[in-house]
Simulated assay, not measured.
Amino acid sequence: MTSPLSPGENSGATPPSEAESKTRVPLKIEDWLTVLIMAALALITFANVLVRYFTNASFAWTEEVSIFLMIALSMVAGSAAVARNRHIRIEYFADSGPISRQRALAKFGAAMVALLFALIAALSVRMVWDDIQYGETSPGIGVPQWWYSIWLPIISVAITLRAIGLMRRKGVAASDDPALPTSPEVRAEEHAP
């Protein structure tokens, strides 16, 4: 088995997948947002533990902010997963059979993800508008609720655009992506005379 790295490259680094190398908007955006959100979660939780330990009280705002950050983290990570074509799927169906079928299923999956998150974005805009119009405040610390809810349509649009980008790249079949393992049937088909 040959190494995907050329001589002289760092053996600890992994080559970018085909999906990652063809995106117009760099995936570093989602990667850095994930790092920043995780760091904020860790700091907030650590600060709350210290305050509880030394004062027998806790910051009231930490739970509310942590819940928001966990939701934002899952959506940002979902955007990266869609762009890299690594979202959840049943590999038996998605990674087996001829390449044309794999591509068709990848395109169909990307289209369904785009449709779902476009609907979520459209419907959540109404929710944000209601939060602003009626002056809803958060239950824990009383800040305007739209400070949290505004991110749902924004990140949903980002996921929709990532899914459309994946679909425009004609769907990356799992066997086309060197970073992903392929099924035995595809490997046998690739090595057939």
Rank of each mutant, 00 (worst) to 15 (best):
E136P: 09
T137W: 02
V157K: 00
N85W: 11
A173W: 06
A83I: 03
E20H: 07
I150F: 13
R126K: 12
F68G: 12
T137F: 05
S66V: 13
N56S: 03
N10Q: 13
A110N: 09
L152S: 04
F59C: 05
A13V: 04
L73D: 04
F59K: 07
D131N: 10
M112V: 15
A72T: 12
W32R: 14
W151F: 15
R187G: 03
V35I: 04
V143I: 15
S100E: 15
R84I: 06
S79G: 07
A121F: 10
S6L: 04
T55C: 06
S17K: 06
S17Q: 08
A40E: 11
F117C: 00
N48G: 03
S149N: 12
A60Q: 03
V49G: 01
I88A: 10
R84K: 07
S175H: 06
R187C: 01
N10V: 06
L5H: 13
S11I: 05
S58W: 02
V125W: 02
S156H: 02
W147C: 15
T23Y: 01
P153M: 05
I120R: 14
A121D: 06
V65A: 09
F68N: 08
E190D: 13
A81S: 07
A94T: 03
L41Q: 07
R86L: 05
G142D: 07
I159K: 00
I67R: 10
R84E: 01
H191V: 14
